[in-house]
């Protein structure tokens, strides 16, 4: 009699735990799908952008202008057009690799993995931030922590925790994704779960035929310095030549 109860209890326990695991998996997949769609919305199948970048520091500020091309999830190239001192400098991202080109030296440097946390062009963005578009989809575990509610009708907050193998310095990241797939805020936490920097969409508008964070500000929460990127022009799903995302393309005007 006792053993019969025991078997029934075990089967019930297995059923409940299995159901719970399946439910958790479904939730994780939902979160991952949402992040994937948001990243795809941001980049499109391919995109061409013209933008202005303002780097603000307590004692000075400077403005740079650049054009950026992206293709798929893993290829991007950024070329600076102003000021004259930086015009021609370029950065290429392919998968996890980043190359930098300087007109002054006429040399292409591959950014070593250990230096990807360094500032990109003196801004509050790091090379890591530029290269990780696809990383956040594949190298993180995602979980929805806040669903749209009465106070925040159309935003879902996803907590993304990097896998042990992910080459990132963060302890976790949090993304606020609107129902129209615009990432309105992206918060970066260190290993002690201390907020280090925040990328916030300060202006969301139509550009290139889609709703988009046309102005985004990355704020360093420790120093309160910030960098704001203002997209002036955008084209999505454009066609690029085969050699647009190669180190050779870095040196072309």
């Amino acid at each position: 009699m006792n053993s019969r109860y025991m078997i029934i209890f075990c089967l019930f326990f297995l059923f409940v735990t299995n159901l719970s695991a399946e439910s958790s998996e479904v939730k994780d997949n939902q979160a991952k799908d949402l992040v994937t769609k948001a990243v795809e919305h941001w980049r499109g199948k391919s995109s061409y952008m013209v933008a202005k970048m303002l780097v603000w520091r307590p004692d000075h500020e400077r403005t740079l202008e650049f054009s950026a091309k992206t293709r798929g999830r893993e290829e991007s190239i950024v070329k600076f057009t102003a000021p004259a001192k930086d015009a021609g400098n370029a950065t290429l991202m392919k998968k996890e690799d980043v190359w930098s080109y300087s007109t002054k030296t006429n040399r292409i440097i591959k950014i070593p993995p250990s230096m990807k946390g360094q500032s990109w062009m003196g801004s509050d963005f790091s090379y890591q931030d530029l290269a990780k578009d696809a990383e956040i989809i594949y190298q993180y575990d995602h979980k929805i922590i806040v669903r749209p509610n009465e106070s925040n009708a159309n935003t879902t907050t996803v907590e993304s925790i990097p896998l042990d193998s992910a080459p990132v310095p963060w302890g976790k990241e949090e993304l606020d994704i609107r129902s129209d797939l615009v990432i309105s805020s992206h918060r970066y936490y260190d290993q002690d779960m201390k907020l280090i920097k925040t990328l916030k969409a300060t202006k969301i508008d139509f550009i290139g035929g889609r709703i988009y964070p046309v102005t985004a500000r990355m704020t360093n929460e420790e120093t309160k310095s910030w960098t704001e990127i203002d997209y002036l022009k955008a084209e999505f799903d454009t066609q690029f030549g085969e050699n647009e995302f190669t180190t050779t393309a870095l040196q072309k005007d």
Partner: peptide, 11 residues
């Protein structure tokens, strides 16, 4: 990068 956060590139 230099004091004004501009990039420094030298050979």
């Amino acid at each position: 990068k230099d004091d004004s956060d501009s990039s420094v590139a030298e050979v």
